[in-house]
Design a protein around this nucleic acid. Structure first.
Lengths: 134, 134
DNA sequence: ATAAAGGGGACAAAAATTATCCACATTAAA
DNA sequence: TTTAATGTGGATAATTTTTGTCCCCTTTAT
């Protein structure tokens, strides 16, 4: 019940990008050195962020990464979801899962509510808010 | 960011115990068959529940397991914590962890709040509530 | 005594996570 | 137009966590 290290990497990367001058790109190597993240692993992590439209990448000399939208339009939930997929506190909450104990499973509802509370909080704070508090 | 299968086993076990007649013990084997849980793995899981004072075990012939207290005094949070230890959505929230970015880490606060919301919900519903909803 | 329980430690298997390597495609600049 | 800097993608390895199994022990009612 914990975010993975990769998600931590993603959060730190997004903070780094949010702090960079508007429109400027940062290279993966630069970020990996600043944040002490294995470069090749970071590449894949950034790819996930790009697929989720949180960052834009630019290939070639002078290329790199930048935020795809203003920091106040990106939430912690966005980042976590980009890396880990949709949050589901219990397997039974995954969309794909077909619970064999349906419909009498009493724990599903508990997890459903807990998850909603969690998601609401993660959605509440934006990357911009986080940067402000630094 | 998901409870483990072992925690699922623990929840199902607690529900099974909550449904048993007051004061009666159920054997690990019985529970493992009813709930389709590997017996030796269940033994360890039950041991964790016993260490957390959620169940009482009785050795010897006719022995088994029963709830250590009324079902309305046991919460989902109690069960999760018994198996997985204290919830910490991010390593940086673990009591033992000493964050190298302290005290300027902006994500810690976000996780702190999210975790509190989650914990509050998990604490809200008791085993008794869950049984009622079956 | 005996058999039916739980207790505990070692270990194995499986799954998930993290990390590394390398060949390739793109692009700006020399 | 070559070159070097950069992201892309796939394969694979290493590590860690989770899950499962085995086996011998202790306790206890009959």
């Amino acid at each position: 019940m914990q975010i993975t290290r990769q998600t931590e990497y993603a959060i730190r990367t997004m903070l780094e990008l949010a702090l960079a001058p508007e429109g400027e790109v940062l290279s993966t190597r630069y970020i990996s050195e600043r944040q002490d993240i294995p470069e090749d692993f970071l590449k894949k992590t950034i790819k996930l962020l790009a697929l989720a439209d949180l960052v834009v990448t630019q290939r070639g000399t002078g290329g790199g990464v930048r935020l795809a939208k203003p920091a106040d339009q990106i939430t912690m939930l966005d980042i976590i979801t980009a890396v880990e997929g949709p949050i589901s506190l219990n397997v039974c909450l995954s969309p794909a899962y077909n619970c064999p104990n349906q419909p009498t499973c009493p724990s599903k509802q508990v997890f459903q509510r807990a998850q909603e509370a969690l998601v609401a909080e993660l959605k509440r704070q934006s990357l911009a808010d986080m940067v402000k508090s630094m």
